Simulated assay, not measured.
Amino acid sequence: MIRTLVVASLLLAGCSPAATPAPANSPTAPSDGYATSACARLVGSMARKEPSPVDDMGTATRAVSATDPGIQEAGKQLAVAAKEAGDLWVQDDPAVDKGPAYRRLADAQQGLLAACTKVYGEPPWAFVKQKPTPTPSR
């Protein structure tokens, strides 16, 4: 109850964490949570060798909500490609060649990567959590 009152009073006073913008192009504290989330998810998605239209649709949803117009547009293109690839994946028709749809999905991923790179510079970005490298056992 007290926590709710404190949060409510901070919100009313204009002291919410979202209201405090980070410096532009700051790699450690970007202000656009949707864009950073989309870019971080994209890196994880591209690291996997198997395409996942469901993951890409989640990434696209975040990108479309971003404030940067380039990331928004790339997110829209990724959403269209992910839906097309997802439809084929759900149909699971062995007679249908999924290759072209997955190539368009990969192209859309590259488009979003280019938009993220334009905003945040070359990856790896500081806001993307890197997986620790396993230490070899003796």
Rank of each mutant, 00 (worst) to 15 (best):
V80Q: 13
G14S: 05
G75C: 07
D56S: 15
A66S: 15
A66N: 04
A63C: 06
V119Y: 09
C39S: 11
T117S: 14
E122G: 08
A29G: 07
Q91M: 14
Y102R: 03
V43L: 11
P27H: 03
A18M: 07
A38Q: 04
S9N: 07
A82Q: 00
K83E: 11
W125S: 08
S45M: 06
M1S: 12
P30C: 09
T117R: 06
A81Q: 01
P132L: 05
G44D: 08
T20C: 09
A29S: 14
P30H: 04
R103K: 13
V64I: 15
D56E: 13
S9G: 09
G14N: 05
Q130D: 09
A115V: 11
E50V: 13
T61N: 15
K131A: 13
P17L: 10
S137E: 10
T67Y: 04
T133C: 04
R104P: 08
V7L: 14
A8I: 03
A18D: 12
R3F: 15
A60S: 14
A29C: 10
A35E: 05
G86F: 03
A85C: 08
I71Y: 07
T4P: 03
L78N: 03
K118Q: 14
T61H: 12
C116W: 13
I71H: 07
P53M: 07
